[in-house]
Design a protein around this nucleic acid. Structure first.
Length: 494
DNA sequence: TCGCCTTTT
DNA sequence: GAGGGAAAAGGCGAA
């Protein structure tokens, strides 16, 4: 057989394979129908190919490509992907295989102890009634505490609290705005307590109970194409924003329970975004800190305030932590001044000192933004793209775009690595193993339900940790914190 | 449907 | 001189 013949055969074979794939919009929502079949998800493809401003919609995508049916659309998407090798591999090796993983997680669901949640709900209810009574006594007339307009009017005009206005001219009553007057006006603390409880009741007690199936489990829906950085989102119910901070929040989380003879085991990437920052920028001081397993916020504080590592105070560490995360998000001096409650010029000084401390971070970002403007896009470690566009409706395009771009390679690469790890974990640990179920992903955290046997748990920990830590080697070691517990609210580090 | 507020990572 | 942390979901009031 000549070389040409082989090439031709290869060409025809790939055409046949390509033409056998079924063109589908949103495979996951109809997974039972297409299970085991070769499919091409046009929605998922369009998520990679589009400019990232909106989630892809079928009607408008068809119109945009000037076609009327899915096979015509897919043909054109394939042509585009063929010219973009990195995106093509991302599509074939990450995005398409992820569909089954998410489908499986959704279908499995998580057991909710509704009796316990109802009791917690009653406790919250009592606290709400008490708070409401106290507040209403002080207000002196009928008021709906859930109405920010009524509350704003009362605080500003009756109680005399000096409140700022929102952009639409109402009084701003958000926590950040009113908390600064809490000492002078004690009603504010009661109001904030009421708000927290009321939020817990409506969003996390009543709504969760209504979503339990006949087996006592709740099933979220993961959206693979909602977030341009490549993070997942979770809805109906959203299990990615279950409370963690307050005491009642913990109690709600403790109502998510492992089934009989099972436990939860969770794996949490530790400081993953800052490790990726160290990797992308090659900043030696940050790399050293991670290599030597030092506290990264403390390290920044040490360099920023020019003190010994062991002499860093709590407050210095807190400031350093704010700056570390602020840099990741492209925070402005104003944003930082709000968070730290300091003047903007002081915040600006911290930022300048940060960049002087870590010069390679500044050099990296200058080159990265410049290249992004030249190419018209920026990309993550695995080649996910964010196109640089200008929104004519917004005034300060450059600043906003800049913030988006600065955050993108960090959050996006972290999301890439998590997606890749989930696929390997599913294939190697979950799919053909009835003792292990993958239930949840909360951005840098995976939660499994595992048969409560030492051998199974130990095996899972070894395997999952190995996959997560070595999924894409960086210039710094990757670390994963492992926890276990009978409920999601009572996980203990192991 | 929009605006405000709150929750998470 | 404005307007300023990244990205989501969702409840509720007001219109």
């Amino acid at each position: 057989m000549s070389f040409l013949t082989i090439l031709l055969l290869y060409y025809f074979e790939s055409c046949i394979i390509a033409s056998m794939e079924k063109a589908v919009w949103d495979v996951k929502s109809q997974f039972e129908t297409y299970k085991g079949e070769a499919v091409f998800d046009a929605m998922v493809a369009e998520f990679l190919l589009s400019d990232g401003r909106f989630s892809p919609q079928m009607e408008s995508t068809l119109a945009q490509y000037g076609v009327t049916t899915l096979p015509e659309l897919v043909e054109k998407q394939k042509e585009r992907l063929a010219g973009l090798p990195k995106l093509q591999s991302l599509f074939n090796e990450i995005e398409m295989p992820l569909i089954e993983v998410l489908w499986s997680m959704e279908k499995t669901g998580i057991l909710l102890d509704t009796d316990r949640l109802k009791k917690t709900g009653e406790e919250i209810e009592r606290a709400i009634v008490a708070a409401e009574e106290e507040i209403k006594k002080e207000v002196g007339f009928e008021i709906n505490l859930n109405s920010s307009i009524q509350v704003g009017n009362f605080l500003a005009e009756k109680a005399g609290v000096p409140l700022a206005k929102t952009k639409t001219g109402r009084y701003a009553t958000n926590e950040n705005e009113i908390f600064q007057h809490a000492e002078q006006f004690p009603i504010i603390k009661k109001l904030l307590a009421y708000r927290m409880l009321s939020k817990l009741r409506s969003t996390y007690v009543e709504s969760l109970i209504s979503k339990v199936d006949e087996k006592g489990r709740v099933h979220t829906t993961y959206n693979q194409v909602a977030v341009s950085t490549g993070r997942l989102s979770s809805a109906n119910p959203n299990l990615q924003n279950i409370p963690v901070t307050s005491e009642f929040g913990q109690k709600i989380k403790a109502c998510f329970t492992a089934s009989a003879d099972h436990v939860f085991v969770s794996f949490d990437y530790s400081q993953q975004e800052l490790r990726i920052l160290a990797h992308l920028t090659g900043e030696d001081k940050l790399i050293d800190a991670f290599k030597n397993n030092r506290d990264v916020h403390k390290t920044t504080a040490m360099l920023l305030f020019n003190v010994e590592y062991d002499k860093v105070t709590k407050e210095q560490r807190m400031i350093a932590k704010t700056i570390n995360f602020g840099i990741i998000y492209g925070m402005s001096s104003f944003g930082m001044s709000q968070t730290l409650h300091i003047p903007t010029d002081e915040a600006q000084k911290f930022i300048d000192t940060f960049y002087k401390t870590y010069p390679k971070i500044q050099i990296y970002y200058e080159g990265y933004i410049k290249q992004g403007k030249i190419d018209g896009f920026v990309e993550t470690l695995l080649g996910r793209r964010r196109y640089v566009y200008e929104d004519p409706k917004r005034k300060f395009v450059d600043n906003n775009m800049r913030r988006v771009l600065i955050n993108y390679p960090i959050q996006g690469s972290a999301a890439d690595l998590m997606r890749k790890a989930m696929i390997r974990i599913y294939a190697e640990v979950v799919k053909n193993n009835s003792s292990v179920k993958l239930l949840l992903q909360i951005h840098d955290d995976l939660v499994f339900e595992v048969k409560n046997e030492k051998k199974t748990i130990d095996g899972l920990i070894e395997k999952v940790r190995d996959i997560m830590c070595h999924i894409h080697p960086l210039a710094v070691p990757i670390e994963v914190d492992v926890k276990r517990g009978k409920t999601w609210g009572e996980m203990e580090k192991i």
